[in-house]
């Protein structure tokens, strides 16, 4: 009799812990993955756990990270932006286009002062973001399709401006932020940190941030609450384009050149970072904290696989598998929340 009671209690306690874990699965799973990866690579390779390598990882995730901040806003709204890498590439090329190039570079460009080139590049990414916003909210094109078109438009801008050439020069400020260091810390990591911090503050402490979560959580309810849903979606598309533009400019300085197709891998990487981190693809759940974890999971994985002697072709497959597992957890976590949904008459 007494034994039974104890057992029942223990089972109840167990299910409470299980419920707690289930409710936070989307936050716990990426974190556990990260710890596992760090532990694994520390064990597998003596060169992995060093301060220098830590800075390496930070630098390697910077361009992806800046793009991922903007994408976090978009995905929280239950939309998607497939044009991020393309916009980054285009804006990197735009800023180079307005910079005086070496005589050997045969591009019909318009050299302007550095500040003017940067302002024009920023204006260009705002404009591209606004086109995305217009297509999605006014015309009513699903974001998946609209930004697919923008991906192509961005590629077109790149092609037209460089015409198969490679530009090297970018404004001095961009060179500093993209490829110089502040003491031991690369400037690009500082920019990433500031972008993440700003993104977090906006999402967590501002009215706009709350609206982003609410629009993603239940768009119809946000509308019934009097939230200007179209304005919020427009804003996140512009934020995403600006983050991509900044990442594009710094990326060009980081790579040391501006050319066609050099950001192609960043689309998948930035979406992976957001989703692996646990931000819901269905909107309304997650945040910058998740994106940080996601960035580190990807960064540690990419970096760590270089430290252990592994077939570089297998690396690609492993990344794909990790993304698939993250997606499964993402959908699974969503389904468990859905079981406790609103009862409706």
């Amino acid at each position: 009799m007494a034994d039974d009671t104890i057992q029942v209690k223990r089972r109840a306690g167990g299910s409470r812990i299980l419920a707690w874990v289930r409710a936070r699965l989307r936050n716990i799973a990426p974190f556990v993955t990260l710890i596992f990866l760090v532990a694994f690579f520390s064990f597998a390779s003596p060169s992995f756990v060093t301060l220098g390598n830590f800075y390496n990882i930070l630098t390697q995730i910077s361009v992806t990270g800046i793009i991922a901040v903007g994408l976090t806003f978009v995905i929280l709204c239950a939309e998607i932006d497939l044009s991020v890498a393309s916009i980054a590439n285009a804006i990197g090329i735009v800023v180079a286009f307005f910079t005086l190039q070496d005589a050997s570079v045969n591009i019909a460009n318009l050299p302007l002062p550095g500040w003017a080139a940067i302002m024009l590049a920023l204006a260009a990414c705002v404009a591209l973001g606004l086109v995305n916003a217009f297509g999605i909210t006014r015309v009513g094109i699903p974001s998946f399709i609209m930004t697919l078109a923008m991906l192509q438009i961005g590629a077109g801008i790149c092609a037209l401006l460089v015409r198969g050439q490679i530009a090297y020069a970018v404004p001095k400020l961009v060179v500093t932020l993209g490829s110089k260091s502040l003491g031991p810390i690369p400037w690009i990591v500082v920019v990433l940190g500031i972008t993440l911090l700003l993104g977090h503050i906006v999402l967590t402490y501002t009215r706009f941030g709350r609206y982003v979560y609410m629009v993603g959580g239940n768009r119809e309810a946000a509308e019934y609450s009097g939230v200007n849903v179209k304005l919020i979606i427009s804003a996140v598309m512009v934020i995403s384009a600006v983050c991509s533009g900044v990442a594009g400019m710094l990326g060009v300085a980081y790579f040391g050149s501006a050319q066609q197709d050099e950001f192609d891998t960043y689309l998948l990487d930035s979406i992976s970072a957001v989703v692996v981190g646990g931000t819901s693809l269905f909107g309304g759940q997650g945040g910058i904290g998740n994106t940080i974890i996601g960035l580190f999971v990807l960064g540690v994985l990419n970096n760590g696989l270089d430290h252990v002697n592994i077939d570089s072709f297998l690396k690609i497959l492993i990344r794909g598998v990790i993304l698939l597992v993250a997606l499964i957890i993402n959908v699974y976590a969503q389904r468990m929340r859905a079981t406790s949904a609103i009862s409706d008459a």
Partner: peptide
């Protein structure tokens, strides 16, 4: 109710959304 409430959000966010 499903059309106007945020199931996952806490009660206070559901109440304050219109007066933020």
């Amino acid at each position: 109710r499903r059309a106007m409430l945020f199931a996952d959000a806490p009660v206070f966010k559901n109440i304050s959304i219109s007066i933020l």
